[in-house]
Design a protein around this nucleic acid. Structure first.
Lengths: 133, 133
DNA sequence: GGCCAGCTTGACGTATGCGTCAAGCTTGGC
DNA sequence: GCCAAGCTTGACGCATACGTCAAGCTGGCC
């Protein structure tokens, strides 16, 4: 019930990133944890945001793009214009994700043929070894 | 039949990248076009390689990783050790692609809910407009 | 021959995403 | 009170991936 909080090194260990990186994300406006005096206190929500950042990075988004994604989630959505621009950004992201899906599928296919060629080459070297069998 | 060739600006236009980028990829060892005197002459194979680079970049691979992918395609595959290491690299790539697929699917789902919230917020503002009819 | 368009090789500049000290504050345990 | 552990804010360094001149060569057309 009492909402869980984390120190910076807690999150660092748990998400396997450096504290430097976490502070950098804050510098870039992707995160804004509470403070107790000077110390940063991270909420469960902050942790989710960090996970979103890491996922974004894994699929090749820049931190600026990750920030946009985070802002899509922000309930601060105000007027109609902003909402429409958000819907536009969401559509852009979808298109980008579709393209990435296609790219990944294509790359899978190409890895298939690369793997086949490797395995055939291996089989061939085994067949022609003098001490074969 | 006579195999098609391209100038650097041909490829630049066709693939929508700068000539600087193309030369940079060559500097980094991802490409090695023929020369006619000083001029670079690109083959159809070079063009395929460039497309592979662009696809790699789209899914967030570094140029060094793209180079590895290209080398997986290189028929220079020699001894058994090299072939086995290639198979290892292919397996790594597959795992990375799987993870990216999952990340993309998850992000799609999250965009769904973000979009819903946007649309509900839009509907709400319309309902409460003074000049609502 | 002269000129322009396109090619070449440097070489320096720049944005992104942190790593890596440095120097100092703060806090719990003995 | 004191010390070590962990936190803080700078500030500089560095790899990646090009952008952006600069200066010069080159080939085809008039």
């Amino acid at each position: 019930m009492s909402s869980q909080t984390y120190s910076i090194s807690d999150l660092s260990r748990e998400l396997d990133i450096t504290t430097r990186a976490i502070r950098f994300y804050e510098e870039q406006g992707l995160l804004s944890p509470e403070r107790r005096g000077m110390e940063r206190i991270y909420s469960a929500r902050d942790k989710v945001t960090l996970k979103l950042i890491l996922r974004g990075k894994r699929i090749g988004f820049s931190l600026a793009e990750c920030r946009e994604l985070i802002e899509l989630y922000d309930p601060s959505g105000g007027n109609q214009k902003q909402l429409n621009s958000m819907l536009g950004k969401i559509a852009e992201r979808r298109a980008q994700l579709e393209q990435q899906m296609l790219d990944i599928q294509q790359m899978h296919l190409e890895l298939d043929t690369a793997q086949e060629r490797c395995e055939q080459a291996l089989a061939a070297t085994l067949d022609t070894r003098p001490d074969h069998r």
